[in-house]
Design a protein around this nucleic acid. Structure first.
Lengths: 256, 256
DNA sequence: CTCAATTTGTTCGTATGTATG
DNA sequence: ACATACATACGAACAAATTGA
């Protein structure tokens, strides 16, 4: 009755069900990524980490072992544990806050079509515009430097699609829509929300299951307020960055 | 030698070490949140889920049990398992794309101060403005309806802080800054990125460890381009929604 | 009403993973 | 490294409730 393992769980949280050594490993990984522990630097001793995370020494070691396998840490007996590499060199995907910056980066990116499992009509809510009679459906993976960053389910009004079939088959749809000359766009909006990768998204975007993702829903209307483009795109969370200019010199703030 | 448990892990992924039943629970939760399984509807049978996820019956049950505890599902013997509630309708936290919408919702929300573990100076990059001489540091939990949604590390220029000490101690700092009359704000910007909850964030925001979060960094400058506010706020990912108006009727799109 | 099919609920044995001291 | 305790996961069998023919 030595009360061997009992984790000091505070509750029945989902949190507490995740293995302790993974929690610690994640925490350490974040400190390295965030630069709190720089490359070459010695990290806290096992004893300090024991105290900080309130877990047994062996558990800390398990966590450190994982990061050693990942090539981020290197332990040396008698000296300590050192950061030998940080994979941060992150390449950010700037998510758009205006039309031009939405279109610009798209042009360089490529796409790979995926087999369509199931056709469906876009769900268009009240006030988002009038749906088109029929839509062409495109299911594709968006790539940059051969690295997948987005999984796109796109609907384009059939008549628009027919105007440039080849373009729509080889390029990113939103870019094609933007360039159609005879088309007048009255409005476009985008809603972003945050989620976790399901099995499909994880496989295609090459991220672990449950990894954070951004779900973007983008709607473009023509002059008659008809929804000509409806895109649901899942982005890898780790490449997304959103930059918002709230106030500029020339635009004074209205208080209250 | 019945090969009892061996998970069919494809690799040494960190996330494949996460318990299977939690992975399944996450997948199910997503289907409910996304409306794929509507409220009142019967979900797939245990047997179907067994096949789909390639796990044992008991493992599916564990996942379903979790969602039952969360009040999303209800199983009835002989009938099936039903969605009885979707938390989706709930509570979106509209993240700001302009100053007014940043300030407005803040006013209703409350905050709870947390003990400060460690003081530090905000890291202000080139071009973000000139740092103030000294900052007051506030570490707090942001609440709405007694539900935590954000974990804030905020620095306010000391002289600004001194002008309304009591306000800063009881209300959300950005709201106080916005209302200071003698203050002129020249610019403000916010950068959002996506991450996973570490242990601290998970505990405070009451989300599972590793749950998606939004890391917001908001900087406000006064008329002299001095950084008077620097906030690093971690939001629960599941309450964040960002709405962006890309094009309006009155603003024509410039092609190329 | 009975019967069979469907579906959830329960239990057993076993093997391995996690975590402590 | 060890003894210990509990968690995770499998497969299989059986029990109990519901439904529709």
């Amino acid at each position: 009755m030595t009360n061997g393992n009992r984790p000091k769980t505070t509750a029945s949280d989902t949190l507490s069900r995740i293995p302790r050594y993974l929690q610690v490993a994640t925490a350490l990984r974040q400190r390295i990524n965030s630069g709190q522990w720089a490359v070459g630097e010695k990290i806290a001793t096992l004893e300090q980490l024991e105290n900080e995370f309130q877990v047994a020494r062996v558990t800390i070691r398990q966590a450190v072992d994982i990061l050693q396998q990942e090539g981020m840490l290197k332990s040396e007996q008698g000296r300590g544990t050192f950061v030998i590499q940080s994979p941060t060199a992150a390449r950010w995907l700037q998510l758009a806050t205006d039309w031009d910056s939405l279109i610009r980066p798209i042009k360089r990116n490529t796409l790979k079509h995926l087999p369509i499992e199931q056709h469906y009509m876009p769900k268009i809510a009240e006030g988002e515009g009038t749906p088109a009679e029929s839509y062409a459906y495109i299911y594709s993976l968006q790539l940059r430097d051969d690295e997948p960053y987005g999984l796109a389910r796109v609907h384009v009004a059939q008549d628009i699609y027919d105007k440039a079939v080849e373009d729509f088959q080889t390029r990113i749809a939103l870019g094609v829509v933007a360039e159609l000359e005879e088309l007048s766009i009255s409005r476009a909006h985008q809603t972003l929300s945050i989620g976790s990768a399901d099995v499909y998204a994880a496989v295609h975007l090459r991220v672990p299951f449950g990894a954070p993702i951004v779900e973007a829903r983008c709607i473009v209307n023509d002059a008659d307020d008809r929804v000509i483009y409806h895109g649901e795109i899942v982005y890898r969370g780790d490449v997304v960055r959103i930059n918002i200019e709230l106030v500029n010199e020339d635009r004074k703030v209205s208080l209250d």
